[in-house]
Design a protein around this nucleic acid. Structure first.
Lengths: 236, 236
DNA sequence: GTCTATATGCAGATAGAC
DNA sequence: GTCTATCTGCATATAGAC
């Protein structure tokens, strides 16, 4: 994993102050795990579009991977979507694998960061409600990222997979702790906390398989319906 | 969809009495939607292995698709696994797409057939328990089929996708009806039966993401844990 | 930073000998 | 039915001009 703070890796921070003079250097930074493709910001030079092309590469990859699957999408397709030739993509990523990995890592780190901001010491029931509603809302708002994060795990290299899995484990750990506290307090009944954790996450994440913004129900209604079922499923 | 009865399409029936003399004829039958690759049984001729190679092709494709994904697996890989050259595969399937479609259709039709055998007029609670336990058990026993059925939908052609979706819809319809009956009888509370249906299915199917036969819990224990959560999630 | 051109390899599918 | 050989095309990634 990158040693950079999450805000940096997520492209929300100060940006990369370095000014790599070539794609080779960009790749070199990758190899050192120092710099993420999504945050490399080079000095503008005549005819340069890196500050707009960079994000567009990730956006295009996100959309295409979600729609057709990582293995079914070619670098040429991504390039066409961005409006450049295939070779130009390699100014922004050392290879296709890293493109996928960056998308997934960005997603997971954003997820964790947002939860971090909402951690509270309230009673387990309130914390469970917050977690459930957050999970639904977040997943409804980012269908492509979520889809990729669940479907493309097997296309990661072993090392990248381990990184993503660790991030996912951390996210699930919060729910597991809420349930544990709730059971200890006599508020919840869960015969096997680990399995209950997985079951609740699966139930909530399943919303992505059917929800469409244009559908019968609003996001708020869906959020409430799911929270109600989660609440009952762990009720005493 | 094939007009053949399910037992035939599933390779459980009498087999195909026809004796195609060439791969071309095999493909022709496909085009007419008359014969499924999984059930073509040709007369044994000197040096022929079709009666063993056929199933082996599907088995190999099943395993490889589940492990690496449809798009990432080549016909050459499948052939190597079976122990033949790539060209020989086309005696058993007209193309790679049909291989995927047959695997998914076989899975869904088997699922539906097994449910058909268990339909009962018992009270909704008993029917819900039977459905939930069946779903867990079936999915634990066929991890590869289930994985493919959920992950490879987007790699189906439009027409094949419609067929599989219709089969899935039929399966979900049984659960929806159970819930509807239970709510009408005052046994269950579900604020939106359609969403509850999707949520329960997602919760149950999620078992495939973590369960391993060598793990801490037996299949029976898992079955009971999940049934307990489903029961509570729709409780009054 | 982006282009064109290219190196290198594998993909799905077919033809025809045996 | 299976083989070998092959057609045709696209894949990832790189080199070097501008």
């Amino acid at each position: 994993m990158s040693v950079l703070p999450a805000a940096f890796a997520l492209g929300k921070g100060i940006g990369c102050a370095m000014q790599p003079r070539s794609a080779l250097l960009c790749r070199f930074l990758y190899d050192l795990n120092i710099c993420s493709v999504s945050v490399v910001r080079m000095a503008r030079t005549a005819g340069s579009h890196s500050d707009i092309t960079g994000p567009r590469v990730l956006d295009a990859a996100l959309r295409l991977f979600a729609q057709h699957g990582f293995a079914a999408v070619s670098m040429r397709q991504i390039a066409r979507e961005v409006g450049v030739q295939a070779g130009a993509l390699y100014n922004y990523t050392p290879d296709k694998q890293t493109l996928l990995f960056d998308l997934m890592r960005r997603h997971m780190e954003d997820l964790l960061e947002q939860r971090q901001d909402r951690l509270s010491a309230a009673d387990p029931l309130s914390r469970l409600e917050d977690f459930a509603r957050f999970h639904i809302r977040y997943h409804l708002n980012r269908p492509d990222e979520v889809f990729i994060a669940y479907m493309e795990l097997r296309n990661l290299t072993e090392e990248n997979f381990a990184t993503i899995e660790e991030l996912r484990r951390r996210y699930e750990a919060e729910l597991e702790e809420i349930l544990r506290d709730g059971v200890a307090a006599g508020l919840f009944v869960a015969n096997d906390i680990r399995i209950t954790t997985m079951a609740v996450i699966a139930m909530l994440t399943g919303v992505t398989t059917w929800y469409r913004p244009s559908g019968r129900l609003s996001g708020d209604e869906v959020e409430l319906l799911y929270w109600d079922m989660v609440r009952k499923s762990v009720s005493a």
